[in-house]
Nucleic acid binder design. Structure first.
Length: 269
DNA sequence: AACCGCGCCTGTTCGC
DNA sequence: TGCGAACAGGCGCGGT
C-alpha cells in the first residue's frame, strides 16, 4: 500500500524518466476508478509535454507544458510506471514520443486519474483541505501540539487524519509511534510537549528512512523501479505475536477506527 | 465540532 | 483439496 515514501519514490522516477516526454496517443480502460477516468478529456493530452513531477500528500501532480495537471492517486494497489507490456489491470496508457508508455495500473481500483485545467489544482476539493506535509518546516512541535489540544481521540487516529498531517498511512503511524515509545491508544490531548516533539522527529525520521530505501514493498504493491526495501525495517507493523525487536515482548495487534494497529506493550507506554 | 463507521474494490489468506 | 469468508486499507462521506 503506497504511503508517502512510495509515492515519493514514484515521483522521483517520473521526474527522471517522464519529464520532457510528449504524449502521442492515449488509451483508457473505461473502467471506473475512485472517480470516472475522463476519457475524452485525457485524449486532449496528445501533443502536450510533461514539464514537472510534483507530489502533494499522496497525490502525484504531473504538470504539462499547457499548464494542465495530470492528477494521479495510487490508492491501495495502484502503480504508475513506464512499461511496454500490457497488463490486465491497466486503466490508462499514454504513448510517448520516446521510450515506453506511461501506464497506470490498479487491480482494486481505489486509485484516481484526472486531468485538471490550469488553476484547478488550488481549488480542487480533494487537494484544498489537506493538512501539512510531514517533511516540511510547517510540521513541528508547536503545530502538532496545537492540533492535539482538546482532542480526545487516540493519537494514532489523529495521525491518520489528513486534515492534520498528510502522507502518514497505517504502516508509518504504527512505526513512528513505536519509535517514539508512545502507545497508539493514548489520547492526543494527554501527550506532553516533550513526547509530541519526539513524535514529530520520529515521523520525519521514519519517512525519510523509508524514502532512502525506496519505500515499503508489501503484499501486492510493487513500486516503480527496483521496488522498496523498507519492509525488512518494520519494527511492529504486521508482526503480531512476534517478538519486539528491542525487548522481545510479543507485539500486540488491535483495531482502532477500523484499522489494524501494532505496538509493543512494553516499549510503548 | 469531533469522531467513527461505512462503502468502494479484488487478490490473498484463512478456516472449515 | 476446495470452497466461501475474512481481510487488507486510502479516502470521502454520512451519521451520531
Amino acid at each position: 500500500m503506497p504511503e508517502l515514501p512510495e509515492v515519493e519514490t514514484v515521483r522521483g522516477a517520473m521526474s527522471r524518466h517522464l519529464v520532457g516526454r510528449a504524449v502521442t496517443a492515449v488509451w483508457t480502460s473505461g473502467k471506473k476508478l475512485r472517480r470516472p477516468v475522463p476519457r475524452g478529456h485525457l485524449r486532449s493530452l496528445v501533443g502536450d509535454r510533461f514539464v514537472h513531477a510534483r507530489r502533494r500528500a499522496k497525490y502525484l501532480l504531473l504538470e504539462l507544458e499547457s499548464g494542465r495537471v495530470l492528477l494521479v492517486h495510487l490508492g491501495m494497489t495502484g502503480n504508475l510506471l513506464l512499461r511496454q507490456e500490457r497488463g490486465g489491470h491497466d486503466h490508462m496508457r499514454l504513448e510517448l514520443d520516446a521510450g515506453p508508455p506511461l501506464v497506470f495500473s490498479d487491480p482494486r481500483r481505489f486509485g484516481l486519474v484526472d486531468l485538471l485545467l490550469p488553476g484547478e489544482v488550488e481549488v480542487d476539493p480533494l487537494l484544498a483541505h489537506l493538512g501539512v506535509e510531514p517533511l516540511s518546516d510547517a510540521f513541528e512541535t508547536d503545530y502538532l501540539l496545537a492540533r492535539c489540544r482538546g482532542r480526545q481521540r487516540p493519537i494514532k487516529n489523529l495521525l491518520l487524519d489528513g486534515r492534520v498531517v498528510v502522507g502518514v498511512g497505517n504502516i508509518y503511524a504504527s512505526e513512528s509511534l513505536f519509535r517514539a515509545g508512545i502507545r497508539p491508544t493514548t489520547r492526543a490531548c494527554r501527550l506532553s510537549r516533550a513526547r509530541v516533539e519526539r513524535l514529530v522527529a520520529e515521523i520525519r525520521g521514519v519517512l525519510e528512512h523509508a524514502i532512502r530505501l525506496g519505500g515499503t514493498t508489501i503484499s501486492d504493491y510493487v513500486g516503480a523501479g527496483a521496488g522498496g526495501h523498507f519492509q525488512q525495517q518494520l519494527a511492529v507493523y504486521g508482526r503480531a505475536d512476534d517478538g519486539c525487536r528491542v525487548c522481545d515482548a510479543p507485539v500486540k495487534s488491535i483495531v482502532q477506527a477500523g484499522r489494524s494497529t501494532f505496538y509493543c506493550p512494553k516499549c510503548q507506554r
